[in-house]
Design a protein around this nucleic acid. Sequence first.
DNA 1: CCAAGCGCGTTGGTATACCAAACCAGCGGA
DNA 2: TCCGCTGGTTTGGTATACCAACGCGCTTGG
Lengths: 216, 216
Amino acid sequence: MTTVEPLGAVRERVLAALRGDIIAGRLRPGDRLVERELADRFGVSRVPVREAIRALVGEGFVAFETPRRTVVRRLTRTDVRELFELREALEVYAAGLAAERAGRDELAALEELLDRAAKATAGGDGEAIADANTRFHDGILALAGNGLLVEVMQPVDGRLRWLTRRNEEWRQLLGEHRELYAAIASGDAGRARAQALAHVRANYRLTVRQLFGETG
Amino acid sequence: MTTVEPLGAVRERVLAALRGDIIAGRLRPGDRLVERELADRFGVSRVPVREAIRALVGEGFVAFETPRRTVVRRLTRTDVRELFELREALEVYAAGLAAERAGRDELAALEELLDRAAKATAGGDGEAIADANTRFHDGILALAGNGLLVEVMQPVDGRLRWLTRRNEEWRQLLGEHRELYAAIASGDAGRARAQALAHVRANYRLTVRQLFGETG
DNA sequence: CCAAGCGCGTTGGTATACCAAACCAGCGGA
DNA sequence: TCCGCTGGTTTGGTATACCAACGCGCTTGG
C-alpha cells in the first residue's frame, strides 16, 4: 500500500468493491471468484480476499458451488420463494414491533426517510431510488429495537438488494411504503403487520413476474 | 499433521472444539480468544483459527469487543429478549409452514426425534437431553422446507443452545414439544403457530427466571 | 508520592510460500 | 473413434513471517 490504512481496511475495501460489482451486475451470477485473481486485481494478498469472500457468502451474494469453485450466487425460483417467506416472517414482525415502540422522534426520522424516497422516485435515478427505499426498510428495522433482528436480516437484505434493483415499479412501491409508514405511525401493531404483509406479498408477485415472467 | 486431513478439516476441527468449549462452559463469557494462543494449543497455524473465530462470531458465540480484543460473548437481558423475539418471529412461522407442508414420512421422522427426546429425558443425562431437544427443533425447521430459514436461524440457535443447557425443566419442555408436534401433525397451520408461540413464550419466562432470577 | 513519557510486549492484519486435491488437456491403446 | 490414463495446471487450505497499533508497566522528573 502506498498509504497507511487503518485496521482491517484492506478487507473492507475488497469487500465493498466486490459487493458493489455484484449488485451493479459487473459480476454476474455464475461468475467465478478466484482468490489469486482478485488478490492480483486489487493489489493485495489472498488473505483479505478470502475473508471478504466469506463475508459475501454470509450476506448471500456468493456461494461455494464445489470445494474449489466459488461463484456469484444464482437466485432460483426456490431462493426467491424462500427469501420472501423470510421477509414475511421478519419484516411483518419488525413492523409490529416498530408500531409498538416508535416514539415521536423515531417516527419523524422514518418520515424523513420516506420523504427522501419520494424525492428520489420523482428524480427518476434508479440507483438513488433503490438506495432510498433500502434505507426506509432499514429504518423500520431500526425502529423495531432489536439488534439481533438487524443482524439476522443481513442475508435477507443482501439478496433483496439484488432484486430491488430490477424492480421498476417505483411509484407503486412508494405508495405501499407510504401506507406502511402510516400504519406504523398509528401505533396499531396489528395494522402495521397487515400492511407489511400486504407489501411483502405484492412485492413477491411483482418480483416473480419480472424475473421469471410468470404470474406466480 | 500426522495424518492427511480432508479439505478444510483443520478449520472445522478448531471450530467444533471452540464451540464445544463455549457451550460446555469451559470457555466462559468474557474469556479472551487469542489467535496465537489457540493456534499453539491446537497445533495449527493462525489462519484456520481466524476463520473459526469469524464463524463463531457469525453464530453469536463470540464478539469483537475492541479492535484487538476478541471474547466469548456475554448474554445480557437485552440479548435474551432479542433472541426470544426472533424465535417468536421465526419458529412460529416455521411451525406454520411445517404444518402445511409436512407429509406422512416427514411427520414420522419428526415423531422419531420426539421419541428420542422422550427417552433422553427419561434417561436424565442433561447433555443427551439438550441434544435431543435441539434436534427436534432442527427437525421442525427442516420440515418448513426453507433453506434460507435454516441459515438465518443459525445465530439464533447458537445463542439458544447456550441457554437450553441451563434449562432443567426437562419434563415441561418435553410436554410442550409433544403438544407442538401434535399441532404440526394435525396440519392446522394456525394451531401449530399458536402452539409454537406459547412454547417460545413459556421458554422465555423460564429462561429469564433462571438467568436473572426475575419473573420478567 | 504521583503523573507524564517512553519502550517493549502483545495482538490482529497482511503478505508470502508451500501443499495436496481436483480439473483438464493431450496421448496412446482398444 | 472413443475411452481411459497421465502429467501438468489450477486453486483453495494451511503454514510462516513481517508489520503496525495499542496497551501496560517501568522509569524519571516534579
